[in-house]
Amino acid sequence: MSYSGPVTFPDANALTPFSPESIMYDLMCGGEFQFSNSMTWTANRAVYIPFSLSRPRRVAQIFWVNAATVAGNTDVGVYDEAGTSKLVSTGSTANSGASAIQIVNVTDYILSPGARYWLAIASDSGTHTYYGEVNAVTIARTTDALGCKSQTSAWSSGLPASATFAAGHEQLPLFGFASLATI
């Protein structure tokens, strides 16, 4: 009888901050595992969430989830580990659709395995609301301890070409990318 080599768990369609490739398990171990209904963004802020891959991963669709108040623009993308290369992003996109997922089709981009990346989101609006995890200052220290970063005044017609990392932030929206063409 022969056996095949070890099998790793198949990839999910979407990768978000709440995925095992990112900080899902670590947030849970840190007592943070319940979404809030809404978080009001700080204008021009970007947050950067680390993730790493064991297999190639296609970025086909990028998404975020709006809460009740929708205003301004959002840009979501992926940076390399150094933060000096924005590999793929939606570009500045008008927010639309209250309390709904918003999806942007991008030119497919294949992320290589065996590397670290940053999942990034920014908005130019100080009134727009996202769905996700927020918990005053406490989670800021948790996300900071887990290596998440943020950047004030990051917006420059969208995410900056090169990230400037500062301490993590308490807002952790539900956003990310999907590998399937249709979600």
Binding site: D26, P50, G147
Partner: peptide, 12 residues
């Protein structure tokens, strides 16, 4: 998959 940069007590 590389380890994350940050390894902390309250993590996986």
């Amino acid at each position: 998959a590389p380890l994350p940069l940050h390894i902390v007590s309250t993590s996986r």
